[in-house]
Design a protein around this nucleic acid. Structure first.
Lengths: 227, 227
DNA sequence: CTCCGTTGGTTGACATGGAAATCAAACGTG
DNA sequence: CACGTTTGATTTCCATGTCAACCAACGGAG
């Protein structure tokens, strides 16, 4: 418990070896990388084991089977976003637009810091028609609920245009974000690279925010809209 | 050559058997259904053959391999959308919003008429990181180019807000549409059913259009914006 | 007019390869 | 020594893709 770091055999640590001797986490991390690079269906468990520098069987020991591994990858990483988004949604004293802005910021930050994680979440999970059924997954549904609550707030305060459905718009909002990431993820791995002609990440972010501002905001002053 | 239809043995035709003796098309049609129901990776060629009421080997005879089948499904169906969208983009005398509206209409019509086709195109193709690489596919790129051209028109005529990038917004626009379909497709097969709480197809369509109108339109009159 | 060989579409049992999952043994730590 | 961790060769399974035979129409020869 209280053992100092020295308890771990130093000789075993090469610069390329992760410091953690927690192989469970190593596998999870390797899975993200391998799934991102070759796709869930395109990779073998042995690829993950190799990447994690771990025996084949250990993957099964910890995660049961391939689906279990993907599920673990998802749960572990998504829960972070879910919590962050939920926190934003609940935060008092902010307007609808403030919150949306923070969420967009959150998403793009995550994408720049952990592009592989975002790639796996978006590509391997967002569309895998079976396995969790996406929207049926409580963790996913929770995020949608949070977003929807933000738009409902906007509707109450008049910040959201009349005639826009809070639920429908929450789906579209998430879709915009998701597609933005997919467009980068599918064309290059570098987060600063270009899509199509000349779209940069910053450019995309600005456009998303502009959309939110122009598309949604009624003529209500920020003060009265804050909750 | 000039032989009448009577040449075909009538007895072989049962009411449940498709009239076409063109098994090639039968296979394509069956593939759409099977891919939509079980997913590309989740189904076997034998499933397709069975659905098409055709021998296993015939699928290979016509389409070479499983990937070839998916590619054929995509090409066949996507080309229809591609052409329609391109036509809208080129049509003279319409404002940017007119064109966007037509495209939205087009998409929702397609979804209501051929939900399975849309499901396959969106789910199995949109995210399959290998296989055509989506955005790299010329047929897909062509549609994006058409959409981008519409937004560029808007930029020229001032119909599109200043500071919104035509290319970035074209990605987001497509993403909104795609997500709208995905949200229906993942939750139910009936196009009239509800998602989340109470979102209907009509509701979603209205919201998308509203977004376009509010988010994009500058203060330019329609007349001057038409091209 | 009938018969048979040819051709193209069609069949489905089978061989193949490859990946998932198992499991019994080795390890090492307390 | 005992128990949790780790190993990786072995087993199991099954979907893909192959292939040799089948059939139905046609046309030319007898």
């Amino acid at each position: 418990m209280a053992s100092p770091a020295a308890a771990v055999p130093r000789a075993a640590r090469t610069p390329t070896t992760p410091q953690k001797d927690d192989k469970r986490k190593q596998i999870l991390k390797a899975a993200v990388k391998v799934f991102a690079e070759k796709g869930y269906h395109g990779c073998r468990i042995s690829d993950v084991a190799e990447e994690a520098q771990v025996a084949y069987g250990l993957v099964y020991h910890y995660y049961g089977n391939k689906d279990g591994l993907l599920a673990a990858v998802f749960d572990t990483n998504w829960s972070v976003f879910a919590k962050a988004i939920n926190d934003v949604a609940e935060q008092p004293g902010l307007t609808m637009f403030d919150k949306l802005q923070q969420i967009v910021e959150l998403g793009f930050q995550a994408f720049e810091m952990f592009p592989l994680v975002v790639k796996v979440l978006v590509l391997e999970f967002g569309r895998n028609s079976r396995l969790g059924e996406a929207l049926e997954n409580p963790a996913v549904a929770g995020v949608f609920a949070s977003i929807a609550r933000i738009f409902e707030q906007g509707k109450k305060t008049g910040e959201l245009y009349e005639g826009i459905d809070p639920y429908a718009i929450s789906v579209l909002f998430m879709g915009m974000l998701e597609t933005a990431f997919v467009s980068f993820v599918l064309t290059a791995n570098s987060s600063r690279s270009k899509v199509q002609s000349h779209i940069t990440v910053d450019n995309m972010k600005a456009t998303v925010l502009s959309m939110c501002q122009r598309a949604l905001l009624g003529a209500v002053s920020k003060k009265s809209a804050a909750i």
